[in-house]
Structures are given as C-alpha cells and as structure tokens.
Write a protein that binds this DNA or RNA. Sequence first.
DNA 1: TCCTTTTCTTTGCCAAAGGCAAGAATATTG
DNA 2: CAATATTCTTGCCTTTGGCAAAGAAAAGGA
Lengths: 151, 151
Amino acid sequence: MDIKLKQQASAITDLTFDLLRCCEAKEKLFAKDHGLKVAEFRCLRIIEAGKTYSVQELATNMHLSPSRLTRIIDGLFAEKLVDRVQSIEDRRFAKISLTGKGQTLVGKLKEEYAELHGEMLKDISTDQRDKIYEGISLMGELVSDWLVKNS
Amino acid sequence: MDIKLKQQASAITDLTFDLLRCCEAKEKLFAKDHGLKVAEFRCLRIIEAGKTYSVQELATNMHLSPSRLTRIIDGLFAEKLVDRVQSIEDRRFAKISLTGKGQTLVGKLKEEYAELHGEMLKDISTDQRDKIYEGISLMGELVSDWLVKNS
DNA sequence: TCCTTTTCTTTGCCAAAGGCAAGAATATTG
DNA sequence: CAATATTCTTGCCTTTGGCAAAGAAAAGGA
C-alpha cells in the first residue's frame, strides 16, 4: 500500500516537473506573440473586468511579493491597461482595475489563449479531455492546499 | 460538439494556469530549503548518475538557451556537483556529468521531492492518484507536441 | 592541403523577474 | 495624542534568461 503511494508520488513528481517546463515555455511564447512580458500577461489574466483589486490581493493570487506587483502594475499603468486609484474608504489601499483598453486586450488574450489550448486538445476525445480536466483539477487543489500549510 | 471543446479548453486553460503558479511556488520553496537556486535544482534533477550530457542536450531538455545553461553549469561546477570535461571524440562538445557529491545530492533531492508529493497525495485514494497521473500525463504530451510544432 | 562553412560552447552585455528592507502615508488602538 | 499596525512604494540587490559575437574544433569542398 505504502509502496503504491511511493510509486505514484514519484511518477507524478516527474510528470508535473515536465509539464511545468512545457507550460512555462508555452506562456513565454504566447506572451511574446502578444507583445507582453510574461509577468504582465500573468497579471492581466487574473484581473476581471469591472472588479478592483488591492496590490496584496494580486500578489497573493500570483504568489509574488507586493513590491514585485507594484512594478508589474507600473508597467501596465504606463501602457494604460490598468487604472490605479487610491481607495477612498482606506487610503492605504490601491484600487487596481482594467481600463477600457485593458478590458479589450484581456478579452482578446483569454479568447486566444483558450483557442491555443483548443488547438492542442482538438485531436483527442471528449472523454480524454475530461480526464485531463479532472486530473489537473485534483492536482491543483492538492498543491494549493499544500502551499497554504507549508509556507 | 465544437462548443463542448471550447468549454473544455477554456476550463483546462484556467486550471493549468493556476497549477503552474502553485508548482512554481512549490519548486521555489523546495530549492530554497535545500540551499539551491531554482535553476540549479531544475538542472540537477534531469542529470542521471553515470550519464554524460552536452550543453545542448541539457538546454533542450530544460527549454533554455545554451548560454543560460553554461551559466547554470558554472554554478554547479563551482560547487563541485558536476564535472565538465571536453569530449575526446569531438572536442567541441562538453561532457557534463554528476560528481560523487552531485550523485549523493541528486539522490537525496529526488527522494525528498517525491516524499513531498507523497505528502500531498497521501490523503486521497489510489484511484484518484491514478486520475491525476493520467490527466497530467495526457496534458504533458499535448503541450510538448504543441511546442515542437509551434516554436 | 588550404580555405570556407558549420557546429558547439563560452563570454559580454543587456533585459526581465523577483525579493528584502527601509520609508511614507494612512488606520487603528491604548 | 502617542504608539502600533497596515498598505504600498522605492532603492538596491540577486536570479533568471536571451542575443550576438568570439573561440575552438570539425567537416567539406576545390
């Protein structure tokens, strides 16, 4: 039993390791093709149109430090993709949101990034896609929970 | 049908995106805990004891440029974890391999990294672990194939 | 053989990514 | 009001990474 766990853990360790490298390469290519820095793409992708976010929210979400986020937002602000206003209720907070231009871009990015994945997934069966969904969903939760406990 | 693909692609896009962030954080933590730079950990992990590798092989494997690899190997060499000798058959090639110290370390790293994943996986069923394995395995191949075609 | 071309690695240089510690501004609490 | 805590930004540093040129070696002509 325990041996079974060990084998599975080892196999999954290797697979996630490889998947990670590939997905990083994929993100880098995609961002470059759209004239964005990888960090900018990653940040834009998690900002929903109409919502506002504090620096800390974004930092936590992206697993980065607040100071790093300040810099990323600086870049997006300079390109007029996001607005940054001081919160009125608590003026320590920044309220970051997408500009009109930002919303248009993010819409396009999401669309095209999903298309890219559609391209990858188009030649396998619906069932297999479900298996991918299920597997990655399970793994994502486990890793996320583990991070909460261990950092 | 096509709508189904679109939905699945979109869902999988989001999931892999989140998984990627979490796994990066996980790698960073693990490397730090073992006194290694992330790039060093990633490099060491793909070098098998007793085998030799060219710079290019490692670069391709890690999806990095040869020049970047030279630097990573410089670091590992300075710590006496890898050997770097000129190939005798073709003296343009470097032959990179683990030193004794490197083998010991890599053995420990692999063991402990698998243990870490074992810790994450221990509370779910064998079946669910198989689902994770299957899903990530499928996805890994798809992304890898896509990269070959698109870069 | 000698010259050109190709291949593999390294080096110099630069950009991007990211964190830490200190500071500024604002809230909160005693 | 004074002390403390929170939020963000800034300065400074490390790490990560690539490109282009240079070196060194092999392979191919003529």
